[in-house]
Design a protein around this nucleic acid. Structure first.
Lengths: 347, 347
DNA sequence: TTGTAGGCGTTATCAC
DNA sequence: GTGATAACGCCTACAA
């Protein structure tokens, strides 16, 4: 025989009708033990490995696949521990739906690759913030698929999963203020897709929501704090920025508010390099609450965001939409955690 | 109208046959400009977003999805820079096929989740090494799907993507020997799924291929070198192990061969901590050639594996099988790169 | 408990 | 260049 056996072949061999055979595999309707056995045996003898997922999907109108759209190269995305954790949570959350995650790149970035418009997905998760996202959003909505946007600017009627970035960052700033700090520098995430490194002018346009909100939170407490933008969320970026911040001994901040833990870790290293003790000479806060490999023995004072929970919430929203329930936008809150990198202002 | 429009609706509205409408969207056959326009217009007016991927897939017998099976939690997998890079390469390589990557967890780990046996995939990539892999392999073969195994023990007829671990590691060891080192310690990756940390007895059974082969390569040059196993490939693990290796000043290796760059980075840090200069007092080699965030200013002496290339090779093998060509197993070679962490043995 | 019938939405083939 | 026809393989009312 040349072609793969179908459920019809199995049914024929077992001497039952196709629908009965189908039921044996789906288990949706009771079947007598004898029949089940016969069908099973027939399947085994033919080397039938179960219903073709494609045909089943078409019939059901569901593929069991959730597309996750990234704006960047996959490698870049997974360099970010927060995204990794969030994917983890998302995977957990969609698993009970019987759904898997399909990695997709933003339409604009792909050639003849599989895309939002041609992939057999039941729903989509858009991650990120930039303008490309709008196009992707259009595509998905045109197809009438449920969408959830994570930490991005979505617009009307699209459920979003957000973080209380501003409020949280304000807490960290408050903590520093209570410790007596007045001369504070802020190390921000990239301002826009350009990812230029450097001082942030007072009137800078900040295209990326996360960056803007965390900065606002810090400025709520320290309106005049200088800000320096990193080109990405990496330890080495934090190190480079830290060198700049600590360059002038006469005019050095007593505390640095970094917008990510990786950046903060780099700043810690820059401080060490400059002969400064943390937190005796300089206090440093992070953001994210991820485990930074290689930072021991320090423990960052930081804002712990429930990254995996973010993924789970996203999954829940997807589940809701798939079941025609109203999905809720969700605002997750961060928890302030005091570590060993902040202390009283040096006298 | 309540249900989504189909290509038949579009065809009717445009006054053409369904097949013609189909051709307009697929572009597989020339169509007159006028007709194309009319179909496009009809589609737009009906809000038709293009052919349903599920139906198209069924018809074509291809879903355009490649399943990637991990043995571990997704989060854990993406913590490993080599895997991340390899995913990146894989994504690149399958994109031209019009395929996307579906993240799957090993069958054993999942509840009613989407799996190898129910997901609409055209091919599968199995990553890893343990025994579970065998089960997954069975499932996939039962479905008659093309499979590629990356760095795992696959068995008969399954194309594999492998690295010249032993030979490569030998090069690094040779390098150290030529520099005069005689007292060398080896820091290995985990020995098995148990991931126990500690000295490796001479007669230890090593279940994980990569660990075993790299160890063998090092021992080809230094048969009597002691070996210590880390519990994972992390900087902090390297640090912890380094502390052990450097604990006794009287009996301290002059060189450490670490089986991954992350481990090596930790060892560098442990050396600093112990007041040892690298490479003046101790030489350290890594493996992988990944960019270790936060290690600057050191540059590891290491073996550069083309991780992304590994992914690309995997994709190529998949492509070959999908086109009924014979897929080749591939042995990739690592390149020795001398950095700033190795030097002559201290006199 | 089992069988019958119809269709999910598309596209390949072939004839015109 | 365009159109009729026939699957792709399965599932689910509904009837028996």
């Amino acid at each position: 025989m040349t072609r793969r056996p179908t459920i019809a072949d199995v049914a024929r061999t077992a001497g039952v009708s196709p629908s009965t055979a189908s039921v044996v595999f789906s288990g949706k309707t009771p079947v007598s033990d004898a029949t089940r056995e016969r069908v099973r045996a027939a399947a085994a003898s033919l080397g039938y490995a179960g219903p073709d997922p494609l045909a089943a999907s078409l019939r059901r109108g569901r593929s069991g696949i959730v597309g996750v759209v990234f704006e960047e190269h996959l490698g870049a995305a997974f360099l970010d521990p927060v995204k990794t954790l969030m994917m983890d949570g998302l995977a957990d959350a969609v698993a009970p739906l019987g759904a898997g995650l399909l990695l997709l790149r933003d339409e604009a970035l792909t050639e003849n690759a599989p895309t939002l418009s041609t992939a057999p997905i039941d729903a989509a998760v858009l991650i990120g913030c930039s303008g490309l996202l709008r196009d992707s959003l259009e595509l998905v909505r045109a197809r009438g698929l449920p969408v959830v946007v994570v930490e991005g600017d979505a617009g009307d009627g699209v459920p979003r999963i957000l973080l209380d970035n501003r409020e949280a960052q304000r807490q960290a700033a408050d903590h520093l203020r209570r410790l007596g700090h007045r001369s504070v520098a802020i190390l921000t995430l990239p301002l826009d897709a350009g990812r230029r490194r450097g001082w942030v002018p007072a009137d800078a346009e900040i295209a990326i929501d996360v960056t803007r909100e965390r900065l606002a939170g810090a400025r709520d407490v320290f309106p005049d704090a200088v800000a320096y933008a990193a080109a990405g969320s990496f330890i080495d970026e934090g190190l480079a920025a830290g060198r700049v911040l600590f360059a002038d001994p006469a005019n050095r901040p007593t505390a640095v508010i970094a917008q990510s833990d990786l950046l903060a870790a780099g700043v810690v290293r820059a401080a060490e390099e400059a002969g400064l003790r943390v937190p005796a000479d300089v206090s440093i806060t992070g953001f994210d609450g991820v485990q930074v490999d290689g930072l021991a023995p320090y423990e960052l004072t930081t804002l712990v965001q429930a990254a995996a929970e973010k993924g789970r919430a996203t999954g829940a929203a997807i589940a809701a939409m798939l079941e025609d329930r109203e999905p809720a936008s969700i605002l997750l809150t961060c928890t302030f955690r005091e570590g060993s990198t902040t202390g009283p202002v040096p006298s």
